[in-house]
């Protein structure tokens, strides 16, 4: 049966987790590997490291972070941020990442998606799309550069093209909702999940446990991503999973989390 993944996301700057609110205001929240291991133990189904470091040296730091994660993390790991070539992606995969997400570079040169899918396999190619609502016939438009730059591009059209080019998964962030705690943009999530044949991760806006249930039931997302509510310990992953299971959504029990089976 279909099951939904709960995915904590860590914005990483120079090897440290930053808590981003509305893509800007950044506060240090610790070592990404420590935090990822904590989320694994608490029942996360997957984790995302998003490298928001601007410098080239920072990129090398990210490879080291992924290598350290490979020693201690035994759930899927997606890494993104600043990936511009097949070689960038390879470095992260060989370091221990399972999937690599691309965003701006894929918009600048969509062939990158095709090349990555051909050389690395679609299953490890995630295309991340940052989206804002706009007025007019096109309801959602694509943004780049961490949400600072608007493209005149229909988000649904880009989602479909990304999948045609070989994306194995889409990570769709509502920038209107990100950091607001007002819930996922359900209409956006549903529109994308219905438009493509690959799994979709919804991101941006989680404020409470009920938002996850709505994202799964109304949004029909395959993955539900959140950051701040987990980093600030406002929501426990086990509670999210209990609520999802109670609502009839397929979900891996949080009791199977971590690296050893106790009274399971």
């Amino acid at each position: 049966m279909k099951s939904v993944r709960i995915i904590p996301c860590m914005d990483v700057d120079g090897g440290r987790v930053k808590k981003g609110v509305r893509f800007l205001d950044l506060v240090d929240a610790g070592d990404p590997v420590d935090l990822a291991v904590r989320y694994d133990a608490e029942g996360a189904d997957e984790v995302v490291f998003l490298d928001i470091t601007a410098s080239h040296e920072g990129r090398e730091t990210m490879v080291e972070v992924v290598e350290r994660a490979a020693d201690r993390l035994f759930i899927p790991l997606t890494v993104g941020g600043g990936v511009r070539s097949v070689d960038d992606a390879k470095k992260l995969l060989y370091a221990g990442a399972d999937k690599v997400s691309v965003n701006t570079a894929a918009l600048e040169r969509p062939e990158l998606i095709t090349e990555m899918a051909r050389e690395l396999g679609s299953q490890c190619v995630v295309v991340a799309i940052d989206v804002k609502r706009v007025s007019g016939a096109v309801r959602w438009s694509v943004y780049t550069h961490g949400g600072r730059r608007a493209l005149r591009l229909d988000a649904l059209a880009w989602a479909v093209e990304a999948v045609e080019r070989g994306a194995g998964e889409l990570l769709v962030t509502s920038m209107d909702r990100d950091g607001t705690g007002s819930g996922f943009d359900i209409a956006l999530t549903r529109a994308v999940t219905d438009a493509v044949s690959v799994p979709v991760i919804a991101s941006g806006g989680v404020g409470g446990v009920a938002d996850f249930v709505e994202g799964a039931l109304s949004g029909r997302a395959e993955g539900l991503l959140a950051a701040g509510v987990f980093h600030r310990r406002e929501i426990a992953i086990a509670d999210v999973k209990e609520a999802l299971a109670a609502a009839g959504v397929g979900v891996r029990p949080a009791s199977q989390a971590g690296v050893s089976l106790h009274d399971h």
């Binding site: 099951s3 799994p199 891996r252």
Partner: peptide, 10 residues
């Protein structure tokens, strides 16, 4: 079903 089958399953 969506492909890839990319999820946890029982």
């Amino acid at each position: 079903v969506k492909l890839p089958h990319m999820q946890w399953n029982r």
